[in-house]
């Protein structure tokens, strides 16, 4: 039996860590741990409340609102945590909701 792989997520601005099982959405996994280190909004890529910046690591993401993640945002590592599937351990920075677009 293979145990599901877990990725460690370090939230630098909150000095907290949590684990995300492979194939799970980052924000969903955080909510299940009862941590509150990323703001939770619509959970559907629409509202922008869970905007984070990924500083290290790899991930794939579902489609998200371009009103909150522009092409330049995406190139700079900004993403909505509710749409992110980690593919390695990640170092992230949360609390980027309503940042001026870079």
């Amino acid at each position: 039996m293979n145990a599901t792989r877990q990725y460690q997520i370090e939230v630098t601005n909150r000095q907290q860590q949590f684990a995300v099982p492979e194939g799970e959405l980052l924000l969903h996994a955080m909510e299940k741990t009862c941590l509150q280190v990323i703001q939770v909004g619509c959970r559907g890529g629409g509202c922008g409340m869970c905007k984070i910046r990924v500083l290290q690591g790899s991930f794939r993401a579902k489609r998200m609102s371009k009103a909150h993640i522009t092409e330049q945002d995406a190139e700079a590592g900004y993403v909505l945590a509710c749409r992110v599937f980690p593919e390695s351990d990640l170092v992230i920075e949360s609390d980027h909701f309503n940042d001026l677009s870079i």
Binding site: G41, C42, R43, G44, G45, G46, C47, S65, C82
Partner: peptide, 8 residues
């Protein structure tokens, strides 16, 4: 509640 695109 929200639809899958985040519309309430």
């Amino acid at each position: 509640f929200f639809d899958p695109s985040g519309n309430r």
